[in-house]
């Protein structure tokens, strides 16, 4: 499916990162990252395993603290934010985990209700049911509403994970390896879903992946993370139009060729 033309506001950065550094013991993962995510944009962060892609979005969502640098999300500087403000901010950010992270002791319905009943306390039972059914319908899995996560396939779990984040109408979506471990057809379906989410929910997204098909299908802009820094940022073609020996193999070894 051809990606629609999104409306990207290049004057409005919903995420602004400057000089971000993060190390685990002696190993420096992120070594001074600068990044802007613009309103309405899908930004794909590409990189090999262990380059700190997931660390980056965990810092953005406040799950990890940076060692140095500033991270501003929807106008809030994460370094100075209070616990209550961070909690309120997190409702505006959707995080789709690599392994979906569905609550395996709850049905699909309960999984989706969980963030809703805790963050929108004035909703009636009818409104909660309506919201759950609406997002499930949006990801095409209404029929799984009473199933347990263990009964779902990998692709279905990914979709439900995305639905659970969409139920709070987030302004920013963070996707951690959305196509990892899925078959090629399901990968395409997930990529299409990411584009649908961008179009329908008007979200700005960071998509962490090492899957070039995903990057090409979903990304409005690609940022290549190498040696702890963004070495190449631009459109898909701009990023890979290079003789850089660190970038070329990434493209050459991918099945998209």
């Amino acid at each position: 499916m051809k990606k629609f033309k999104p409306h990207i506001d290049n004057n409005n950065a919903v995420i602004r990162i400057r000089g971000l550094k993060k190390a685990f013991e002696d190993y420096a993962v992120l070594r001074g990252i600068d990044l802007d995510l613009y309103q309405g944009e899908n930004l794909v962060v590409l990189g090999r395993s262990g380059t700190g892609k997931s660390v980056l979005i965990k810092i953005i969502s406040g799950l990890l603290k940076p060692d140095e640098g500033s991270v501003e999300v929807l106008g809030h500087e994460l370094e100075t934010i209070t616990e209550e403000e961070l909690q309120a901010l997190r409702i505006r950010i959707g995080f789709s985990f690599q392994n979906s992270a569905l609550y395996d002791s709850m049905t699909v319905r309960k999984n989706l209700e969980f963030p809703l009943v805790r963050n929108r306390k004035n909703l009636t039972r009818k409104e909660i049911d309506h919201s759950v059914e609406e997002v499930l319908d949006a990801v095409g899995l209404l029929k799984t509403i009473n199933q347990m996560p263990a009964e779902l396939s990998g692709g279905q779990r990914k979709r439900i994970g995305i639905a659970r984040t969409l139920i709070l109408n987030p302004e920013i979506m963070l996707y951690d390896e959305p196509t990892a471990g899925l078959d090629p057809i399901t990968c395409i379906e997930i990529n299409e879903l990411i584009n649908e989410v961008q179009e329908r929910f008007k979200t700005s997204s960071i998509i962490i992946t090492h899957d070039l098909t995903c990057a090409k299908m979903t990304g409005d802009r690609i940022a290549m993370l190498l040696d702890g820094q963004f070495q190449r940022v631009g459109s898909f073609d701009e990023v890979f139009d290079t003789n850089d020996e660190r970038v070329k193999p990434f493209f050459d070894y991918n099945f998209i060729q």
Binding site: S61, F97, L102
Partner: peptide, 17 residues
Amino acid sequence: SMRVTEQIDAMEVSGTK
């Protein structure tokens, strides 16, 4: 098991405690 499968992180990022 919830920690390993990131379910605790998922609760945290969805604004619940």
